[in-house]
Amino acid sequence: MSAPQQKLPPGIRAWTDGRVEAAALRAYELVVIGCSMGGMKALMTIFEVLPKDFPLPIVVAQHRYKTSNEALPAYFRRHTALDVVDALDKQWVQPGTVYLAPADYHLLVDRDGEHGELSLSVDAAVAYSRPSIDVMFESAADAYGQGVIGIVLTGANADGARGAKRIKQRGGFVIVQDPQSAESPSMPEAAIAAARVDRILPLERIGPFLIELCRSTSP
């Protein structure tokens, strides 16, 4: 899978460039991550390197079985300095905390004045998925505009592609896992095809890049 045939933004040598161009350094407000098949391992690889004082809240939509158990946040917590919780409705998001979309709900992001707020829905599944990555990404783009960093990871479908496109339309930053490093490449490939993404990075480099990207963001 080669990089998309698009003109590179000024200051970037390649789509896989690990450096952050000056124009991308701004005060971000939220990270949203979507993943499906193979997502557990991919998320872990990113969370492992993020420090406890990571300046942004991270909201994750991972396709999960309806009956998937409650042990998932605890499992993640053992491998990261970040706090990891299952999202509750109307919960305010905090920096350095990971919010997982609960099984069998859509997770949407909103604002309540100064605060980022989570909102759940039991509307019909979108493309057979609930939680849907597109639903989450689109709500984040609508609420945060260019304050959003969206990350599309491994997965065996096309969820997240529409959402990545919306984040880009609204001026946000999109990182896609290099399909070659993905357990299941369809989802990254679909996102790359749908949106003018900012970076395509091997999994191991996403975490360090994220830290670099947020260095001018204060919690």
Binding site: H106, L108, D110, S119, S121, D123, E138, S139, A143
Partner: peptide
């Protein structure tokens, strides 16, 4: 009504 869901609907 909560805006994100309302908007989608």
């Amino acid at each position: 009504y909560s805006l994100p869901s309302l908007r989608r609907r």
